[in-house]
Structure formats: C-alpha cells, structure tokens
Design a protein around this nucleic acid. Sequence first.
DNA 1: TCAATGCTTCGATTAGCATCGAAGCATGAA
DNA 2: TTCATGCTTCGATGCTAATCGAAGCATTGA
Lengths: 226, 226
Amino acid sequence: MKEGPDIALLGNMIGDPARANMLLALMSGKALTASELACEAGITSQTASFHLGKLEAAGMLVCRKQGRHRYFALSGPDVGHLLETLMGLAARQGHLRTRTGPRDEAMRKARICYNHLAGDMGVMIYDALLERGFIEDDSDRIDLTDTGYAFSGKFGIDIAHLSRQRRPLCRSCLDWSARKSHLAGSLGTAFLERFYELRWARREKTSRAVIFSAEGEQRFRDLFSV
Amino acid sequence: MKEGPDIALLGNMIGDPARANMLLALMSGKALTASELACEAGITSQTASFHLGKLEAAGMLVCRKQGRHRYFALSGPDVGHLLETLMGLAARQGHLRTRTGPRDEAMRKARICYNHLAGDMGVMIYDALLERGFIEDDSDRIDLTDTGYAFSGKFGIDIAHLSRQRRPLCRSCLDWSARKSHLAGSLGTAFLERFYELRWARREKTSRAVIFSAEGEQRFRDLFSV
DNA sequence: TCAATGCTTCGATTAGCATCGAAGCATGAA
DNA sequence: TTCATGCTTCGATGCTAATCGAAGCATTGA
C-alpha cells in the first residue's frame, strides 16, 4: 500500500503486553530462556513460544540453543535504545502501569538499563561528572574531558581500551523514573561493571534492580555526591 | 501487573497499519485534517475518527479545532524522534513495504523528515559538511566548527539565533532510504527553510517529497557536492 | 431557515489473534 | 532403553478490535 519502512510491524510486536513484558525483561542485557520469559510475562510456555517466534522473525530477538535450553536476547543495542525511547515517552506522558511497592522503590533507586546503571544513582553519576567538568554535555552529545579521563582511569577504567570500540564512549539516556539524563555508552557500562567488581553492588535475581551494599553505597556517595 | 512505563500502549498505537500511516503522514510536521488523514490511511472517515481519538488519548497527537475542521499534529518532536527511530530500525532489518514507483523515486531523492531534509540530497549535505570540516561527527554527537559557522552564516543562516534555542543545533538522523546519516537539529531545519526561501525547492502537496527546480538543484550541487 | 460539509457516535459484523490443552519432538540423565 | 525436562506444533476456543453503514451534531454559507 504505502512506501517506506514498516513501522507497524515493529509497533505490533511491542503492542502486545506479553511481548512487551518479555522485551522489558531482556533490557537487563542478559539472555533468558523461553520458560523464564514465559514466567516473566505471566503466560504458558506454549504461548511464549508463539510470541518468541514472532519476535525473532521480526528481527528483534536472537536465539542461541544450548543443550535443551533456548536463550533469547535483544538482537542489538539499537533495539534496547528503541525500548528506552519508548519508555521515556510513555513515562513523560504518564502512561504508567501503576504499582508502587518496595521493589518499585529499589527500581527507582538503581536498576539496569540494558547495560548501564539507571535510576536515581545513575542520574547521580551523570550529575557529578558534569558538575566537576569531567564530561561536557552539548544537547545530546557528550564528551569526556581530560580531567574526566584521569578520574576514570584512577577509578580503574581503561578509557583507551573503550575508545577503540565502535560503541560511543558517552551517551546520555533519558531516565523514565527520574526524568533526567543518566550516563549510557561504553563508559556507563564500564562504571557499572566496576561497581560489581568492587562488590559495591550486585544484581537482584528476579528483577532489573541493582542492590548496593551499605558500604558500597557509602563509597558511591563519597565519590559522586555533588 | 508489572511496574514501569507502559510501552505496550504506545506499541499498540503504532502497531495498527492505519494508525501507522497517519503518524507517518504527520511526520511532515504539518497539521492535517481528519479527512486528509483518512485518505492517507485509506480508510473511511468514521474509522479515522476512531483511530484519531485513540492516538490523542494516548498523547501522541494534539488536535486543534478550526471552523468545521479538526487539525491533527504530532504532540511533539519526541514523538517524531520515536517514529524516526522505528523507521531506522525497520529499514535496517529489511522490513519494507515494497512499492517502487515514480513517486517513490522522488521520495528517495528528497523528502521531509519531520522538519528537515532527508533522502539522497539530505545525505549529500551531511557528507559535504563533514568532508570539508564544517561539522565534526563523534558517534552520535555533532559539532559545528568555526569554519562551518562562517559557511552557514554566508549562506544566510543565523547560527547565533539558533544556538539560543533549546533544540540541539546539530543532530544526525538515520536515513531509511539511503541508510546513512543526514543532518537534523535546528541547523537541518534552517537549511531546508533557506532552500524554500531561495526558491530552490518546494513541497509536493500530496506527499512528503521535496521537489527541487532545475536551477535550484544545480546550485545545490555546486554547494554540496564533495 | 435550509442545505452542505466535516466529523463523531451508534450498532452490527467480521476477522484475526492470543490463549491454552494435548500431543509431539528433541536433548540429557539414569 | 526409559524417563524427565524444555520447548514446539496442532487444534479449538473465545475475545477483542477494526471496519463500515447509517444516523446524529456542529459549523458554515446561502
């Protein structure tokens, strides 16, 4: 009928609540099995299989067989980026699936956004780096300054190595809970991994929440409060 | 059921072909009446009314009454940006609604992308500016250099004025037909408006295509060929 | 006041799609 | 071989959502 890319197909994929739940679950960046995703979406495994087939055919997911398990993951960072864009827009327009509980609280504080830290603590990093002139934000491009380079190195992050990757070093990512920017890009990922390494934080198994230890949070605040 | 923003609602809106067509038609940035959108989507006015009501309720469209007409427009640039993201992803994955005709040809050459120029000619601008060092592209942030500032000024664009706006001056935008970047942001808009002003180009009434006059295209090529 | 236009609401129809039970098919373990 | 697990395919079902004809409202113009 019409020319151009078929956005309705992608929209349709995301438009089903079961599929949307599975996609959001995969935003953690980890690959999940079909049954884990079924559970996450609250549907039977037959139905999940049906949906996963569609999502794979649409190119949004990739699948890796391992033994009798099938692991699914987002087909690339661009899919993750699309989902974050959607979440940002949905949040801004107040389309929230309302449920506020303790877990929600933890999510608001610190959670995984594809491969970097989001939530209040993610925003804190961003604000602190900006405040001290370690990064410079020009609308939607961000640069690491020389002092920021030094700071990151001292914290144990090998920027030279990251720069060689194709991924952008710094990106800003709109946070749907805080409605402010937080740090994405390979530097964002590197910070999060360093937090794990230093045992400041760990993943919660059942959700995207990131749990900081008391000591870890203290050190985090020492480093990033403005 | 789950926490977080409701991306399924937005996905669902975009997931219906009729609605997707209407949204794409509004990517031109112009406000259109309900019947124009019905025609664009190939449905009756009753059905269009039904869909437009949903899109408005979802916050994706805004409506302005004028006499007995109702003009609809995208509720903001963020919606346009979401649609472009979707188009980029869809194109990269080969989900194209195939139809190639003369009009399609014109669209591929030059068309409106929300408020700036896309298609081959849009890509030409981007490449030329980059080649001559007028802009610098670092992954997904773009800077205008001093020489680029001078160049734009000489072409009749008041950069100082644009910089004062909240919109980013330069943004790259993935082109679904050329599959390369073209220039977005307020500078992209300014270039397009200048082309209109100089009578190098005009909008086609029925589509998003932009038609250059013979002379306009010649001057364009003189200015932007690499 | 009457007619025309643009749009919405109502009602009925239809089709497509998500869902799940049951069965089938691999893989791995005993 | 036999059993258990993880996943898919098949078939049937039920429901929702898109669609359009017809009628109803509002605005404009004569």
